[in-house]
């Protein structure tokens, strides 16, 4: 699915004429058309492709808090996610939460304490029917053909409608400048990844399923750091590892009754219990 430069320019041109108008547009169109008419843009051939990406997260393989932290750090370090202490202004792409808060309403009074308090790794569910995408007034958040719910931080106007719509609390708003410092003068981003951008105040951000890594043939960072606890793959491919796990084991999804169709499956029991 490559889009040639000509079509590109057409769209750019039409939107410029509609938006701005003026002679410079006509001038620019003709010159650009000559200069770069043969230029094309294509995906990286190394990129991973799928019909619908998804995760199977085996909670039994994530034993200690250190196991969770490894996945969280992998993601947050790569993506320059600021660590802001104030929970009101916190930004997080992946984090852990106890069972009763991850799956509210399913806990019960006789549930064993250990399970109730068990930690689950939470991140954007990359829903098949995402409410956030439905409500976004600028298509800053949109669904890709491969199932990734993307966030275009260039286009986001910061209205936070998506945060009201998301039933999973997966979205964070930059209430503060992520490049700023905390009260003790320490920067929110401890170590910058120089190959990835930060964000700016006033935009919403969230897990983007490591689209920048998928594009060059790498697994999402959390899956890579999880020691096999997080399996990433194509949910539509019956032979993929993620499908085999879902087929053979008992899995649950967060708030399935809302119809958003999360693409993240939590493996609860082994095949012998299924």
């Amino acid at each position: 699915m490559s889009m040639d430069r000509r079509r590109f320019l057409k769209i750019a041109g039409v939107s410029t004429v509609l938006g701005l108008g003026g002679a410079s547009v006509m001038n620019g169109l003709s010159r650009r058309g000559l200069e770069a008419s043969q230029a094309t843009v294509t995906p990286d051939p190394k990129g991973l492709t799928a019909k619908r990406w998804g995760f199977a997260i085996d909670v039994n393989k994530l034993g200690s808090p250190a196991d969770y932290q490894k996945c969280i750090d992998a993601c947050h370090n790569i993506h320059n996610v600021p660590s802001i202490e104030n929970p009101k202004h916190e930004v997080k792409w992946i984090w852990n939460e106890t069972y009763e808060h991850s799956f509210p309403g399913t806990e019960h009074e006789y549930m064993n304490h250990e399970f109730k308090e068990k930690n689950f790794l939470l991140l954007c569910n990359h829903c098949a029917q995402p409410a956030c995408v439905r409500v976004c007034p600028t298509q800053a958040t949109f669904k890709r053909k491969d199932g990734v719910v993307m966030q275009d931080m260039h286009r986001c106007i910061g209205c936070r409608f998506c945060m009201a719509a998301c039933p999973f609390g997966a979205r964070s708003f930059n209430y503060r400048d992520p490049r700023g410092k905390d009260a003790n003068g320490k920067p929110f981003i401890k170590v910058e990844n120089k190959t990835f951008p930060t964000r700016m105040i006033g935009v919403v951000e969230k897990c983007t399923m490591c689209y920048e890594r998928l594009a060059i043939g790498q697994q999402p960072a959390c899956a890579e750091a999880s020691n096999g606890a997080i399996v990433f793959g194509d949910l539509e491919d019956p032979n993929s590892e993620v499908r085999k796990i879902i087929n053979s084991k008992y899995t649950i999804r967060r708030k399935p009754e809302l119809g958003t169709q999360p693409s993240i499956y939590y493996v609860i029991g082994g095949s012998e219990h299924a």
């Binding site: 699915m1 490559s2 889009m3 200069e35 770069a36 008419s37 043969q38 230029a39 094309t40 843009v41 294509t42 995906p43 990286d44 051939p45 990129g47 949109f142 890709r144 993307m150 275009d152 260039h154 689209y211 594009a215 060059i216």
Partner: peptide, 11 residues
């Protein structure tokens, strides 16, 4: 960001 096209081939 929107089309996942990351390779630019100039003329």
């Amino acid at each position: 960001v929107r089309d996942n096209n990351r390779i630019y081939k100039n003329r």
